[in-house]
Design a protein around this nucleic acid. Structure first.
Lengths: 242, 242
DNA sequence: AAAATAGTGTCTATGAGACACTATAGT
DNA sequence: ACTATAGTGTCTCATAGACACTATTTT
């Protein structure tokens, strides 16, 4: 135990230090599908492949600040739900050098994301294909039109972990509204839940459960221009104004 | 966006790099209480205060390997349930320099831990007082006998997050047996659940739920030397031999 | 026999799914 | 009038809690 203790407590300035980055999985819902925001890598390694928005953590910058900065810089959105996910630190995950990546995920209403101007060639919205159920976890496939995108680093695993985490949160806490505009119908909320969970839900009990949760606040307003009875619009009771 | 992009992608070798450590919250159950393993700091900062076992991550070492090494060095136990929890990276969490700590938690049968020889003055088993319910989260208080222990760094918050995580896992997956010897009674398992969750459980439905889960395997053996009808001993169906 | 806990059977309350029915928009 | 979806009321089924009862050990 002596030697172990010695190594564990050794003066760190004598050790090589790893680089530390943040990567952000920005999730949104498009129709019935979960999508994520990807940027094309311009440099080696993995040049030309698709990657999560990411960047190095400043020496005096908190991890949360770094994630928000990187996300804003590479997607244009800020003031979104952002939560730390997991830290990926396999010694060879970056072939250049030791890089430890603190992975975050963010949720946004797709319309807020698409409202920004973007360099169309350098970014894309990829459709997630999740080959497992529940919170099993594992890598996901990302598709655009009919082709499967080749992702850089361990980003397919990071996105998979983000999906598993959001699925877990959805059962316990109301975060579905982070993927919707401020006013939405209960049906739209159900679509979001179904897209995230990857399976359909019972309409009646979903409605009852949401109304019973106390998180929804009726606005008295209704949909317009729909070819059927218009649904009432709700907002989240504890939602912050945007 | 140009300048942001530039900064985000800048060559990291030009930046100062943070040090990266792992800290491990080793949890066990003693009677009806959750306890954790602490070591006394011999050096500044926080000299003399109690701290989680921790140490620097080697430049070619995975995070999981570092956590297992540090835990083994400072507590003597290995082959325990060990899972990454959260990464703490506030810029001033260590007054010496920027240190980012990847926090882990581990679960162990207290008897396995106490079976080792330890430097009695430098380590202790602290009783956790959790001032919140459910998975709310937040810092915890750690007590020994009647005094509250002063913890180093953000370790009270790390332990709190470990408790919240274990509570969450307990609802979904059978990890309670990680805190028990290989053969145990259903009542002992319930005691573990109650210690972790911080509230009592219904005896009948706990029994039914555990038996229905399919995770328990009856051994046909029974307790001996108890002053009442002896309970049957079970083992976990998917438990690995230790 | 008394004390203490293990273990079983059954009733009840709660919440989800299923389904039938009414309501209200556009076409 | 027809179609599509919103929204309500009620029945059923599964699961947790409550409680009564029996079983088996030590003292």
């Amino acid at each position: 135990m002596e030697e172990h203790d010695f190594l564990a407590d050794y003066d760190p300035s004598q050790f090589d230090r790893p680089s530390v980055t943040v990567d952000v999985t920005l999730l949104a819902v498009q129709g019935e599908q979960l999508v994520t925001w990807l940027v094309r890598r311009k440099e080696h390694p993995y040049r030309g492949r698709w990657a999560l928005p990411g960047g190095f953590v400043g020496i005096d910058e908190s991890l949360d600040d770094a994630a928000a900065r990187v996300l804003s810089a590479k997607s244009g959105v800020s003031d979104v739900y952002l939560e730390q996910l997991f830290t990926f630190g396999a010694p060879n995950r970056d072939p250049r050098m030791r890089v430890i990546s603190v992975s975050y995920y963010a949720l946004v209403d797709l319309q807020r994301l698409l409202a920004r101007d973007h360099d169309r060639a350098g970014v894309c919205v990829g459709r997630l294909e999740v080959p497992w159920e529940g919170q099993t976890g594992g890598a996901v496939e990302v598709r655009r039109e009919d082709s499967s995108l080749r992702l850089a680093f361990d980003h397919a695993a990071q996105i998979g972990m983000a999906v598993a985490r959001v699925r877990g949160h959805l059962a316990n806490t109301p975060i579905g509204f982070q993927l919707l505009p401020s006013r939405f119908t209960i049906r739209a909320l159900q679509d979001v839940h179904e897209a995230v969970l990857g399976h359909t839900l019972n309409k009646d009990s979903f409605r009852r459960r949401m109304l019973a949760s106390g998180e929804l606040q009726a606005t008295g307003e209704y949909q317009t221009d729909v070819g059927h009875r218009p649904a009432e619009l709700y907002r989240f009771a504890s939602r912050r104004a945007i």
